[in-house]
Simulated scan of single mutants.
Amino acid sequence: MKTEFKIKSLLFGLSFIAANYMTAQTNQTSNDTINNQTAATAQTSGVSNPEIEGLKQKIAAKPDDTQSLVGLATAYQNASDWTSAIATWNKVTAIIPDWAPAYYSIGYANQSAKNNDGAKMAYEQYIAKVKPEEVDANKQNLAYAYFFIAFLDKESNPEKAKQYIAKSLQYDSSNQDALNLSKSLMN
């Protein structure tokens, strides 16, 4: 009897979820509504732990504290909360738009969230923002950013992919994935 009750309760709950899903799929919303909902979700969703809460309090007191913002974005990444990490890294780039590592981190978080287009755009910005005097310190990240873009563009833009994989190998000639991609692009 208890098992039958549990099954009925489970089915009843699932019916509510299905009904809400169907409503969400059939309701039309404007882009402004979607953007506002996304922004609200980015601010309120996510993982919480003492480190994140402490950093949020510091940022609430001083919103332009880039050190705390970077710490918060990193803490979100460590907790695999990609949406919050991206939103926080974007706050960093709004304050310091020429700081290349933030764009690399946005690319990484987007890639981890399976948003390859967002990752590609961020990695392209990262590549453009690395200053000549910073290249040596950023070789590994540059190699990966170029590789990722080449990988995504191998079908749609093979010439760009060839150029980017050559750049990737220039920065890291030992990356086996990049070497394999380079060989496949040459065929």
Results as ranks from 00 to 15, higher is better:
Leu169Val: 05
Gln25Thr: 12
Lys154Trp: 08
Pro132His: 02
Gln25Pro: 05
Asn180Ser: 14
Asn180Gln: 15
Asp153Lys: 14
Ala75Lys: 10
Phe147Ala: 13
Ala40Asp: 10
Ser184Gln: 11
Leu142Val: 07
Leu142Ser: 03
Asn115Val: 07
Leu14Met: 06
Lys160Ile: 06
Lys162Val: 05
Gly13Phe: 15
Glu155Thr: 11
Ser105Phe: 05
Thr26Phe: 11
Asp98Met: 04
Ile106Arg: 06
Ile95Asp: 00
Lys6Glu: 11
Gln125Val: 04
Ser45Asp: 05
Lys131Gly: 01
Phe147Leu: 15
Asp32His: 13
Gly54Ile: 08
Asp65Pro: 00
Asp65Leu: 00
Asn20Pro: 11
Asp117Gly: 06
Lys131Arg: 06
Ser9Thr: 14
Ser48Val: 12
Asp81Met: 03
Ala137Asn: 08
Ala40Met: 12
Ser156Asp: 10
Pro132Phe: 02
Tyr21Arg: 10
Glu124Trp: 07
Lys6Val: 15
Lys162Pro: 01
Gln43Val: 07
Ala94Gly: 06
Asp81Lys: 06
Leu185Asn: 10
Val92Thr: 00
Ser9Tyr: 13
Gly46Thr: 06
Leu142Trp: 04
Leu169Phe: 04
Pro63Thr: 05
Met121Tyr: 07
Phe147Gln: 10
Val130Pro: 01
Ala150Gly: 09
Trp89Ala: 00
Asn110Gln: 06
Asp32Asn: 14
Ser68Val: 00
Asn141Trp: 08
Trp99Gly: 03
Leu169Ile: 01
Asn35Gln: 12
Ile106Thr: 06
Asn31Thr: 15
Asp64Val: 01
Gln57Asp: 12
